[in-house]
Design a protein around this nucleic acid. Structure first.
Lengths: 112, 112
DNA sequence: CCGGATCCGACCCGATACTG
DNA sequence: CAGTATCGGGTCGGATCCGG
């Protein structure tokens, strides 16, 4: 379990690899919801409109594995879990923001 | 054929919609290959490593429908087709570039 | 040279029900 | 509250053959 592929060559990185990390249907929306700060699981479930439990869990796990979010568990009587972005994840903020701005500017209309 | 849904409300634009446009496996790589200027079909097929004909055609059509690229046909004896980015498509350059830089910086390693 | 058409497997994603 | 388990459909993407 503590075994992960350790690759130290940073040179081989394709756009496709990046998209497998944050190109999913929900990834960016979740990251977006985490920009202001930490969120609980149920908060995210409410904020990311249309997502269901399974997908949220799956995406969060994936992001954790990719070092984009951190998961923090509190041993309270009703279980509490918080998620927040890592530095790596926070660096995506300007990018996602610009992407969103691009979309707002041109949506469904390409001929002026 | 000249009938498309005309939506004039620019306010409803989600990240998911944007990703359906440029979130495919090959979209960004193709756009990336088109940054320097216009390219012929076979050029793209060579530049975008791993793609096959069907996918390239499909993506290019999609991008054309979304106003990201323009298709120019020359009635030469061996058929010639050129593709180039529209202004809308060119605006993606800084975004894709930053995304790529992000990927280069952290690839497969999230714990510093 | 450029692309259409078809077949087909793989994976993504959604709904629901259940557990600690 | 925060997940896990299972089922099933729909879409994505790859190989290959065919046509202008």
């Amino acid at each position: 379990m503590g075994e992960k592929k350790i690759k130290k060559n940073k040179e081989r990185c394709t756009l496709q690899e990046i998209l497998t990390i944050i190109g999913g249907k929900w990834s960016m929306s979740i990251i977006y919801a985490l920009f202001p700060g930490k969120r609980r699981f149920s908060e995210l479930e409410r904020m990311v409109t249309g997502i269901n439990t399974r997908m949220l869990v799956k995406e969060l796990k994936n992001m954790e594995a990719n070092g984009i979010v951190v998961r923090k568990v509190f041993a309270t009587v009703p279980p509490t879990v918080e998620y927040m972005l890592t530095d790596k994840g926070k660096k995506l903020e300007p990018i996602i923001d610009q992407l969103y701005q691009w979309g707002v500017e041109y949506v469904g209309d390409g001929v002026t």
